Amino acid sequence: MRIEVRTGAFDPLAELSRYREESTAAERLGATAIFIGTMRDYNEGQPVRKMMLEHYPGMTERQLQCIVDEARARWPFDDALVIHRVGDLFPADPIVLVAVWSSHRGTAFDACRQILEELKHRAPFWKKETLEQGARWVETNSDGYTPRPIPPTSRTR
């Protein structure tokens, strides 16, 4: 497992490929769930030109490790990769990569989602957005997606 906070840009797909080459668990498992988050060019109905993402070094990495450990206790997955960017970001820049490897897709999806949602709510990151008319600190994260039940007619597989 690897958890990393970076100040520079990264290519999520290249990181996945590189990690898969390094990890013995990731190459032999049947499911990989991946989330890649990028910077939006809008927030709260306003265009955003730039964002500065700050963190608390040391504490952030420890909190991310705790989040992954908690997910692993609930969902017994085999491997995970979490990379989060800090510093100055621009629209479309990758911010976060969460990847989870498991023998089964359900475990991989559930663990990946738990890690991401907990990261968004508990990890010590602070966002300052640059708008057309100045700058503002972001006070709340957007809500996560709550899945809707699958209609009975769609359950034919």
Rank of each mutant, 00 (worst) to 15 (best):
T60N: 07
Q63M: 14
L64M: 00
L64V: 03
Q65K: 12
V68E: 06
D69Y: 10
A71P: 00
R72Q: 06
A73E: 15
A73P: 09
R74F: 04
W75D: 06
P76Q: 06
D79P: 01
L81Q: 02
V82Y: 04
H84I: 10
H84C: 10
R85F: 03
R85K: 08
V86D: 02
D88Q: 14
F90A: 15
F90I: 12
P91W: 02
A92L: 14
D93F: 03
P94D: 03
I95Y: 12
V98H: 00
V98C: 04
A99I: 11
W101R: 01
S102V: 09
S102K: 07
S103C: 13
H104I: 08
R105N: 05
R105Q: 08
A108S: 07
F109P: 09
F109L: 14
A111L: 06
R113H: 13
Q114A: 14
Q114D: 13
I115H: 02
L116H: 03
E117P: 05
E117Y: 02
E117G: 07
E117T: 11
K120W: 02
K120P: 02
K120M: 00
K120D: 01
H121M: 10
R122E: 11
P124R: 04
F125L: 11
K128W: 03
K128M: 05
E129K: 02
Q133L: 11
R136K: 06
W137L: 00
V138M: 00
V138R: 00
G144T: 08
Y145T: 13
Y145A: 15
P149S: 10
P152G: 07
P152F: 02
T153Y: 14
